[in-house]
Design a protein around this nucleic acid. Sequence first.
DNA 1: GCCCCTCCGTTTTACGTATAACGTGAACGT
DNA 2: ACGTTCACGTTATACGTAAAACGGAGGGGC
Lengths: 326, 326
Amino acid sequence: MARVAGVSQASVSLVLGGKWHGRISAPTAERVREAARTLGYRPNLAARNLRTGSARTVLLVVPSLTTHFFAGVHTGAARVAAAHGFSIVLYPSPAGVGPARDPFASAPAALDGVLASSMAAQALTVLRGDRLPLVMLDSEPDATPGTATVNLDIADGVRQVADHLLGLGHRRFLHLRADVPSWTFAQRARALEERLAAVPGATLRTAASSMTADHGRAAVEGALSAPGPRPTAVVCDDDMLAVGAYKAARRLGLRVPHDLSVTGVDDQVLAMALEPELTTVRLDAELTGERGMEALLSVIEGRAPVTHDIPVELVVRGSTGPAPRT
Amino acid sequence: MARVAGVSQASVSLVLGGKWHGRISAPTAERVREAARTLGYRPNLAARNLRTGSARTVLLVVPSLTTHFFAGVHTGAARVAAAHGFSIVLYPSPAGVGPARDPFASAPAALDGVLASSMAAQALTVLRGDRLPLVMLDSEPDATPGTATVNLDIADGVRQVADHLLGLGHRRFLHLRADVPSWTFAQRARALEERLAAVPGATLRTAASSMTADHGRAAVEGALSAPGPRPTAVVCDDDMLAVGAYKAARRLGLRVPHDLSVTGVDDQVLAMALEPELTTVRLDAELTGERGMEALLSVIEGRAPVTHDIPVELVVRGSTGPAPRT
DNA sequence: GCCCCTCCGTTTTACGTATAACGTGAACGT
DNA sequence: ACGTTCACGTTATACGTAAAACGGAGGGGC
């Protein structure tokens, strides 16, 4: 390469690295670029990484990419990373069985930082101790002081849901919880409890289910068949659970929203596919990924850790209506 | 590291690389491992990659991870890659706007091979010319002779759909095409046409739509409102388009499946969420990813390219029923 | 004439690993 | 006693880059 261009190897590095101004004349620089073009020359990344001590690579830790939300997070994070010349490597689904794998074993090169979802708790225990820049997504604000976090204010979304349903006259609520031990779900439960505690006459039942439509259906069917006055609104931790609520309602002969109002969280494509379309809390997954990656790159580049808040938005559609008269 | 273990650097490499049998005594090997453990020593990946000339890394080219199918492909591919000590780097969504980016610019290290979906056509033009091992997913069998392919026999799935509907007495069909210029969709259209051409009295209309529920609805609504005898079955290229068909049916006052049968392709979570549940062609995305990665690793390791066929399966649910009497 | 500066490059070095090539005692066969 | 093998490690080298250190030629100031 250097031979073809008729210059030294160092000049090649300077030109292709874009740091030649004032050191290499314009014609020579052009000659180097031309030679690189005709040869199809690409700098050896391994050598570059060895020399610079960095591969400009970041680890993204999420439970599963098949979850709509995390796929969106990846998309947003990847966009920002690419814009800064960084690459993303995914931590292989810790949600799968087996012990937490060594996150570094999955990377093709040294890591500059870690962007981790709070739902991937297993991996974090592995990551502690390595002094890598770390940014948490949707984690408890003061859980890890000093590290940047990107916080989705889902609690606020749940409060909006509660207010919306209260405004429609609902007083008897069923909360369909995702039985995943994660702060994000605990937060939702607490927000709903607190909001309803402030309303005289409001009651709250709780059911828990794994995050599939079928388990959700069973849980809701059980809770709605229990003795006592039946809840008129089901607040679900997730759109997929809301599908379960729809199915339960159908089996029990209840119409949505006439007899039973249902809400979700996420606003997946699912929400618009349902009939009636689902009232739900929209989470902007891509924005979450973007902000997370921006925060992480800030830390990597030595700036102070910032904390972002991602606003959420209640999207009212057809699955919520006035509470039925008793 | 070598100092701490009281041994030469070469011995460290041998022991940690697992190639010490017969060259290093067991006690010494143990001493090295012990030292590595206490120091938290990790081999420098950049140096290793430079020395070995490989980063054991593969590029996965898919249009978008937010598409359910491709997220599944990634999951399967990642599982196999991890089992062989390989890493996956994703090519950043070529479906996005802008010119095709340099795939190698997104990688943190040198690539050993490429696993590409046929739907990411843009990227392929970039990849041609680089003599990297390449495996295509769901691409036209003889499009790239010599390269391994993993073929989803969706044409067969469509034929099963046609036979299923014909058996239910349907004769007037509407094909809702995804207007994406990809071989996989062209293949579906051809299979349906050929199958119906063999049935006297069978008719086929076609509508095209981008892959969103709303556009699908509009396309189906238009096609069903056109003059002439109305189709009684809508065969959709995708589950998302089937959602559009449901919505169109509702707007036109048609019940599924009583007045209109609907089918999809994919079997996303969506399919079970719909009411009635969707009859669709199940594609095993994870298996596709696994087979694809296995084929690619074979080529990388110097074995002959193999071609796999992934079977598809018609899943009959509630969205198809007997053709209405005229 | 001498010193100093600027411009344009080159020479050299270090990064940390994998592995080929090279000892070095001790045991062993004859 | 002497070559041969074996078991166990070490020394030395190359990978391709980034960047610090180092000129050399030409020009300007005094």
